[in-house]
Structures are given as C-alpha cells and as structure tokens.
Computed example of a mutant assay.
Amino acid sequence: MECALGDRPMTGNAPSRESAAQGPMSSTPARPLAIEARGLIKSFDGTRAVDGVDLSVPEGAVYGILGPNGAGKTTTLRMVLGIIDPDAGVRRILGHDRPHEVAHAIGYLPEERGLYPAMKAVEAIAFLGALRGLPLKEGRRRGRELLERHGLGHAADRQIRQLSKGMAQQVQILGTLVHRPRLVIFDEPFSGLDALNQGRLEAMMRDLAAQGTTVIFSTHVIAHAERLCDEVAIIAGGKVPFAGSVDVARDRIPAQVRLETRAREGAWRAALPEDARREGRFWYFPLPESGIEPLLRALIEGEAGILSLSIERAGLHDAFVAIAGEAAARAMGQDTPEETGS
C-alpha cells in the first residue's frame, strides 16, 4: 500500500488529490523542506503507536526527534522512509511522494544495528553503499578513505566480529554515509557509544549539515539535541505537542532571575514579583514582562544593595518537561526540575 502526497486517501481523514493540492502542503516555503508529513497514523494490534504526527524538516538542518522509548519515534521515521506504510496521513521526502524513488539519496541508520560478523569492515561499508546504488569498487575506495579519516584505518581488513561494539557501530555509521546522501536519518545513534565517540558523532553531524546535508536523529537524551539541533519535534504518546526551533521551545518558559542583595528588608521588596522565592542568599523569580530595567531602578532607589544579578534562560530539558510533562521526562531517564533542584 502506498501512502503519498497526491494519492487517493486511504481513509476518510486523509486528503484527496484535490484537497492536498489546495492545502498548506502545496504552499512554497521560504526554505525547501527535506521532509514534510501530515497526519501520520499507525496502529499495531489495535494500539495506536503514532497518532496524527506532523513534521516539517528544512533542508540542511540538524533536526532532532525527542521522546521516551515507545513514544513513536522509530515508527514515525519508518513511515517517512517508506519502510512501513501509515494507516492514514501523507508524506513527502526530498520532493518525492514515494520514498523509494529517492532511496539512493538517503542514508539510514536503524536503531537495531546489524552487520555480517564475517564481513571485513571495508566490505561492510561498501555493501551498505551498494544497497543505495553505489558501485562496490567505489564503495571500497570511499570506505577506506572514511575509515582512515575517522581513525579506523587499522580496522579496514578486520572482520566485524573482531571489532569492539563501539567500533562496529562506527563502521555502520560510515556505511550510512558512504554514498554521500542528501538526507541522513539516524535512529538513536548515540546509544552504545562512549563519551569520546559520541563527541565525534556530534562533530560529524555538524560537518554534514555544513556541507548542506539534512541530518535527522531521534534520541531520548535531551543534551544531544540541545547542542546540535536547529529544530526539534517532541513526541509523547504518539503525538507531537511541539515542533519548531529550539529557541521557541525554550521560550515557553520565562527566563529566571537570580538576585543577591546586601539588605534583607526594605521598600525595594515590594518591587519583586509575588512569586519570588528566597533560597539562602538568593531570590529567584521569572523575568518580569516589563523587563529587568524597572526592577533595577526600584532596587537601586530602595537601596537594596545589589551584590549579584543574573538572568538565566530555560534549557531544552525544562522546556521538554513543560511541553511533554514530567511522566515523559521520567520515561526518558531525565530528572524533572524539582528533582534537580533547578
């Protein structure tokens, strides 16, 4: 079953050819989209795993899909790639309605890693490239170059079974890139990598984006997304409560002010917001909508004796908790603000 933009609807909820052409997906965006999906739905054994997911991924972006295990991240990516068909909804990838038409321009690292144990590292890379249309001879040449560039030249002719788990995973990542795709999709790519190799993978993603490649990765570790991403989609319970820039997500929570004063009492106290709380030497409260300047004047005129004042913007972790809820954050193994004391 094909489900693509321009096809007849699979259910009454999917748009027809005419409505799709007239709807928002037909408008020309200021920045071309590598992936555009609307209303993706998928159920397994009567349980809805993905429930109306929308995605818009600009070309050349580093785009993160955040959510706990079981949230629907992998199912969403597989539908976008055409590995499985949605029960309803439409998607377009690299300008094509049918994902298989552009498989040669896509690199995909699945969550379930798998290489033939008896195959040599360079042959494994060439084989993965051949699956995307790259001639084996060229794949071997590029494979050796990639292995050398990433410090694995010594492992080129070793069998996969002779490599450590981390090295084998790096080989599979290089096999995902050997055909020089325009779009790369990594499903939980940092899982199983030590801190050093996680840093190398982050650098690789930045380099790919700098070269114009679109990079999409799913993760349940918010720190990776905060360091890397231009935009994110948060998935919880098969739905997307937020999709957009990291800055917009963080702006869901007002910046926090931390104030330390020499005086403990005085008329200046009336200038603090009602929800200001004192913890030890410091006052904490959200940045007032009027900005910090009126408060500063009141503190100075009231002789509060400002010892320190800082404005701290919310992190992506706090934004995730606010958007997806504490239960989703705990399912990702992330502490909530109350638990971290922030």
Score class of each variant (00 low, 15 high):
P32Q: 11
A37G: 11
N197L: 13
G238F: 06
S308T: 03
I306P: 09
A209D: 00
H104A: 14
L128T: 03
R278H: 00
R144N: 10
E111G: 03
H154A: 15
Q22G: 13
V240E: 08
T75F: 00
A37F: 11
L152M: 10
L193Q: 03
P254Y: 03
G266E: 07
R8F: 14
T261R: 05
R149G: 01
I253R: 08
L33K: 13
R200Y: 00
I235W: 02
D275Q: 13
R78L: 06
G244E: 02
P58V: 01
E339C: 05
L152Q: 04
M79F: 08
T213W: 00
R200H: 06
D275A: 06
G67A: 10
A324Y: 06
Q169G: 02
R132K: 12
D51Y: 15
L77T: 14
P68V: 09
R132N: 09
E101R: 15
A314T: 11
R227D: 11
G23N: 13
V240C: 12
E123N: 05
G237N: 09
S310K: 09
L177R: 03
I253L: 07
M10S: 14
V232A: 06
T261E: 03
G70L: 10
D251R: 12
R269A: 07
S218I: 07
L146F: 01
M332R: 14
S26P: 04
A103C: 04
E312H: 14
G133W: 07
P99I: 02
P286S: 04
M1T: 14
Q162H: 09
A71Q: 10
L81F: 05
M79E: 04
T336S: 05
L77I: 15
R258L: 06
S16G: 12
V321W: 10
D7V: 01
G60P: 03
E188C: 00
K165C: 02
K73L: 10
Q256D: 07
E59R: 15
P294E: 00
E293Y: 08
E312M: 09
D251K: 10
R142V: 10
P15K: 08
F285K: 09
H150N: 04
S290K: 04
T47G: 11
V221G: 03
D335K: 14
M79Y: 05
A331R: 14
S26G: 12
G82A: 06
R252G: 12
L40N: 02
S164K: 08
R142A: 04
L136W: 15
G114F: 03
A236F: 11
A155G: 02
R206Y: 03
P15R: 07
P254L: 01
P24I: 14
G237A: 05
A121E: 07
